[in-house]
């Protein structure tokens, strides 16, 4: 572990100082590894406990209850929560809301990100300022007036459009796209211009294929928000048939469902159903959270 010399430094002669450093280095590495391990443990323990708690027949908060005891395991909690809230219907509502938000975010964000990074036009500074402004001002300032507008004036309560509307623009996505387009060397676009491509053609045939990794990143980043969002859909949906899972689960846990055999277990079972899609998607695509190597665009 201590001998991970990079190719660049491998050729240079090592000083004696560096050799004597190695023992301390090993200790430091072990300490570092321990700290990282503790961090991972603390990050993951609640998830382990979420699953164990969701599978418990009877609520067991003893220290032994941390283990999945075979005698106390059941899937009844999932059936229980499903009898109170329509899990499938809620999941579908979550999915529709999320798909709407991600779709709007990607299309609008890609267009603005491209315009801001590659083109130059009058009002560009203003548009960028708007992007940052949207990012900087908390949603809470808009919460009450938006609620009044969407529910009272637009009549969009209990509708997908009403849930999606405030999240259709996402500054993070714009900044991701802008950043990716800025990373692409100007020469790529200039080369296309010299070849006589129109600006629109450059966007469709050169820019969009190049930022495919950014599309994925923006998708993953924006998927999390609406899927997990509680406050806004909670405000605009009163009809249980329209509520996304986060809202119906929160209402279920607030309702103190004592008629359930294991109320806490039922809530945790619902929590698993809400958490698993986001976590699985993240696990599948986590390597895309690193920035892609765009240098290849100029080769050849």
């Amino acid at each position: 572990m201590a001998t991970n010399a990079t190719p660049a430094t491998a050729g240079t002669p090592r000083t004696t100082e560096e050799h004597s450093d190695r023992a301390g280095h090993g200790l430091l590495a072990a300490l570092r590894f321990a700290v990282l391990l503790v961090g991972a443990f603390l990050a993951l323990v609640p998830f382990y406990y979420m699953i164990v708690g969701a599978l418990q027949k009877e609520r067991d908060t003893s220290i032994l209850g941390l283990l999945p005891l075979p005698g106390n395991l059941t899937l009844d909690n999932f059936v229980g929560v499903n009898s109170s809230i329509d899990l499938l219907g809620s999941l579908l509502n979550s999915l529709i809301m999320t798909a709407g938000v991600v779709g709007c975010t990607l299309v609008l964000g890609l267009l603005v990100g491209y315009a801001l990074a590659v083109l130059s036009f009058r009002g560009q500074g203003l548009v960028f300022a708007l992007v940052l402004l949207v990012q900087a001002i908390p949603f809470q300032l808009l919460m009450v007036p938006l609620y009044v507008m969407v529910v009272r004036y637009f009549n969009l309560a209990d509708s997908y459009l009403g849930m999606i509307l405030p999240f259709a623009i996402n500054s993070v996505a714009v900044l991701i796209f802008r950043q990716y387009f800025l990373q692409i060397p100007r020469d790529v676009f200039d080369a296309a211009r010299i070849d006589g491509a129109s600006e629109l053609r450059i966007l469709v045939s050169v820019a969009v294929p190049l930022v495919r990794p950014a599309v994925l990143t923006a998708m993953l980043v924006t998927f999390i928000g609406p899927w997990n969002e509680f406050l806004w859909p909670f405000l605009v949906t009163k009809d249980a048939a329209m509520q996304p899972l986060a809202v119906s689960l929160a209402n279920f846990s607030q309702a103190n469902s004592t008629f359930q055999a294991n109320p806490m277990g039922a809530v945790l079972a619902g929590a698993c159903v809400l958490a698993i899609p986001a976590v699985v998607l993240f696990l599948l695509f986590q390597r895309h959270f690193k920035s892609a190597n765009l240098g290849s665009a100029l080769k050849g």
Partner: peptide, 18 residues
């Protein structure tokens, strides 16, 4: 480290209450 960040507050808060 990133998993708590991608999980819904409603779900993780249920465990914290537990």
């Amino acid at each position: 480290y990133y998993i708590p960040y991608v999980t819904a507050s409603v779900a993780t808060l249920a465990v914290w209450i537990f």
